[in-house]
């Protein structure tokens, strides 16, 4: 992820942490700038998770309202700003999904529906190039997993399901779900680490 990205449109472009500092002081324009930089990521994640356009819009608004009212709770020592922002969005979506699940019975999801699309889906070439390496690495790592392992990871993260809920939905034994999740995440971590190492060697 492009955290602390200072290679923006010009040499004087403020970092997101500088913008956040201004937001905390009540600078509306700084919030507007943060929105321009990150709303696409937030909206895309929300849309993927709640699968409903108007709800995704609501989540996106709420996330930036959180930045406005509680931006000071961000801690730079616990990760980059965009990670924090996307965690806020993720938690907000999980709340929505749990609410929805209480209302309706969850349908089984097929592996086909979980295909990960590596395209950027837009024309922002510059942003795409800046993020390309990371994005490709993570997308590839996820796509290299055996489908059953990928499935449980996607269900846990994007649908906010616990291991026993996944076991219920898939009709697989709980032990199997646990093993798949563990092996899958281990493998992703190793694949990402190998990629990062390869990148460093190229430099």
């Amino acid at each position: 992820m492009a955290d602390s990205d200072s290679s923006g449109p010009g040499p004087a472009a403020p970092t997101e942490v500088e913008l956040l500092g201004l937001v905390i002081r009540g600078d509306r324009e700084a919030l507007s700038a943060l929105y321009d930089r990150f709303s696409r990521q937030v909206y895309s994640l929300a849309l993927r998770m709640v699968e409903n356009q108007s709800l995704a819009e609501e989540v996106t608004q709420d996330v930036f309202m959180t930045v406005w009212t509680r931006g000071s709770t961000y801690r730079s020592d616990r990760g980059g700003f965009s990670s924090w922002l996307l965690s806020v969005a993720h938690n907000r979506c999980i709340d929505e999904l749990r609410k929805r699940r209480r209302r309706a019975k969850l349908a089984t999801i097929s592996i086909d529906e979980m295909r990960v699309d590596p395209s950027t889906g837009g024309d922002e070439v510059l942003v795409a190039v800046l993020q390309r390496l990371d994005r490709e690495t993570i997308v590839e790592a996820l796509n290299q997993l055996p489908p059953p392992q990928k499935q449980v990871i996607v269900m846990a993260y994007f649908q906010g399901l616990t291991q026993s809920e996944i076991s219920d939905v898939l009709g697989s034994p709980l032990g199997t779900v646990k093993t798949r999740m563990r092996l899958g995440l281990h493998k992703m971590r190793d694949l990402m680490a190998v990629e990062r190492l390869a990148d460093q060697n190229e430099l």
Partner: peptide
């Protein structure tokens, strides 16, 4: 670190 990167796998769509 892996989990924090999972949003990157989502197709990017403008709001």
């Amino acid at each position: 670190l892996v989990v924090l990167n999972l949003p990157e796998t989502v197709p990017q769509i403008d709001p």
